[in-house]
Each structure stands twice: as C-alpha cells, then as structure tokens.
Amino acid sequence: MVKRMELRHLKYFIAVAEEGSLTVAAEKRLHTAQPSLSRQIRDLEYEVGTPLFTRSVQGVELTAAGRAFIDHARLAVTQADAARDAARRAAKPANKTFAIGFLMGQEINWLAEATRIIASDLPNIELTVSSQYSPDLAEALSSSRLDLAFMRAEPGWPELDYITISSEPFVMIMPSDHRLTKHKKVDIREIAGEIFIGASDIAGPMRRKIEEYLAANNLDIKPAHRIHNLTMAMSLIASTRGVAILPMYALNFLPWSVTSRPLKGTPPTIDLVVGYKKSNTSPILKSFLSRVDQLKEKPPSLSSKVILKR
C-alpha cells in the first residue's frame, strides 16, 4: 500500500473520474494497463481511508467522498503544474511563449485558424496547445498559465474577458439504429420516455442551455446519466441506447454506432468564445485580439454532417 499520497495518484484519480471508466482512462488518457490503474486507485482509496468510486457494469461514479475529494485533487495538480511551468520559464527567461487552450474537441475546428492568425509570430515563439474542460481553462487563464482559450463564457471570473466567435446549434445524438433516425429532424417531445444522457456540472453553460430548452418545451426529464466529455457521451449513448442533446461540434466524435439529427423548430445554441485575462500584456495576445474578427468571418461548419446516416 502507498506510504503517502503522491501526485500521480491524484492524476490517475482525476482521469478516472472525468472519463467515468477505468478502461477508457487507462487506454486513452494515461496509456497504462487497466489492472495497474485499478491497483493505483485502490491504493489511493486505502490511503484516503474511504471508497472514492462506486463500480458497476456501466463504469465508475464518484461517491460522496470522491466528489468532496476531486476539487482538492484538481487544485493540487494545478498548483504542481504551475510550479513546474514557473520553474521552466525561469530557466529560459529569454524565450517568448504563447499558450492556447481549447475546450476539449474544439481544437479540431479552431487550431488551424488560431495558428493562421499568429503565423508571423510562430518562428519566434514557443507555442503550447492544450485541451481541457471550460472551467479549467478559466482557471488557467486566471493563473496566467494560458494566454488565450477557446471556451465557454464561465461566470465568476471577473478578471477575464470574452469575445464570442461562434454560436453553434444543439443537435440530437442517438444510436445509429434508433427509432428516431427515421426523421430528418427530431421533435424534442419525441424523447419523452427515452434514456436521456445529460451534461454534468463541469459543462455548466451547456447543462443550463439544455435544461432551459427542455423546460421551454414543458419536458421534465431527469438524466439517467451525466457526462463530462464527448468520448464518455458516445460510449453511454451506444451502450445504454440513450439519447443526448449536444452542440454540433460533437459530430467530430461520432463512431459508426452513433448518429445525429437536427432538432425541429428553432434549436438552442451555445456560444464559443475566445477568453483571455484582462491584465495580460503579451504583445502576441494583443496582436491576436486585433485580428480576432478573422475568426468570425469563416467559422468552421459541420452542417453537412448533421444528417449523415451511419
């Protein structure tokens, strides 16, 4: 058993919590063997003194103790990463750096556009790119670990400013052989009685948009599961034969077993913004913001995929 809690245990714990699966966390995030990861999680639970997860055939979910533990675990990892980054910057003070963060999955649509805008600066800077949840991007901007982020507008960060660059509609996501695939567009009232996959608090702006849309259509639907990321969403939709309402960029992640349809009527939309810290004096950031309107001129489009049959 562990003699003390180590940083790697916290990182393993966070990965499992966010993926909702030991297997997915081991293979996709940590690149380690699942039995080894299970052993590390058991060691951590032994050190903490209480179970942090409940296990089932659907995956793992945080216990009450796990939910209390995860915020502190994230903070500890964030502070350790900040300490490492500060030491590296101090060791190479002459290097100009520019750090861009993306809401997980949005880098597929926007990384090329972002680098095009700062192309003239690229030969002279060290560019770093990361993908995180939107609340984590806000924290990284606030702590100056990121210069710029493609994200959702997160409340509670007055030191940050946001510029809306795109507004994407929500679409219905379902198994490829689901009964609703016979429709070119899905009436939201058709999902009454279906297994519904909802968003977790980590995706706060998205969760609020979905709940407001359901309420506006007089639907009182309680999610059977809540998801943290799109990989987890696709896995649950395929395995439970449930349905979900997700922003259009989710279409980048559709496996063969999952498909989509537009929503009938006027679908809800959610904004993608460029976030940055108001006090950031980076000349590269200033240059980027002066040309940010270029992103609005040609926003990535996925509309051709919406009714793709699989």
Rank of each mutant, 00 (worst) to 15 (best):
M1W: 10
K3V: 09
E6D: 06
L7E: 11
L7V: 08
V16G: 12
V16L: 15
G20T: 13
A25W: 03
S36M: 13
S36W: 09
D43W: 13
Y46K: 05
L52C: 15
G59K: 06
T63L: 09
T63G: 10
T63V: 09
R67I: 04
I70D: 08
I70Y: 00
A73S: 11
R74I: 13
V77E: 10
V77D: 09
D85S: 06
R88G: 09
R88E: 13
A90E: 14
A94H: 06
Q106K: 02
Q106D: 07
E107P: 07
W110E: 08
L111K: 02
E113Q: 10
A114G: 03
D121I: 01
L122K: 07
I125N: 03
I125W: 02
P135D: 06
P135Q: 06
L141E: 03
S142C: 05
S142N: 12
S143V: 12
S143Q: 06
S143M: 12
L146Q: 07
L148I: 08
A149Q: 04
M151I: 08
E154Q: 12
E154P: 04
P155M: 12
G156D: 05
W157P: 00
Y162V: 11
I165E: 02
S167F: 13
P169N: 05
S176C: 10
S176I: 01
H183C: 08
K184E: 14
R189W: 10
R189P: 08
A192I: 13
G193W: 00
G193E: 00
I197A: 11
I202G: 08
P205I: 13
P205Y: 04
K209H: 09
K222R: 14
R226E: 15
I227R: 00
L230V: 09
T231F: 08
I237P: 01
V243L: 01
L246D: 01
L246R: 03
P247S: 10
L251H: 09
N252F: 00
N252L: 02
F253H: 11
W256D: 09
S260R: 01
L263S: 10
P268W: 05
I270N: 13
D271N: 15
G275V: 12
I284W: 02
I284N: 08
L285W: 02
L289R: 01
D293E: 13
D293C: 00
S301N: 14
L308K: 12
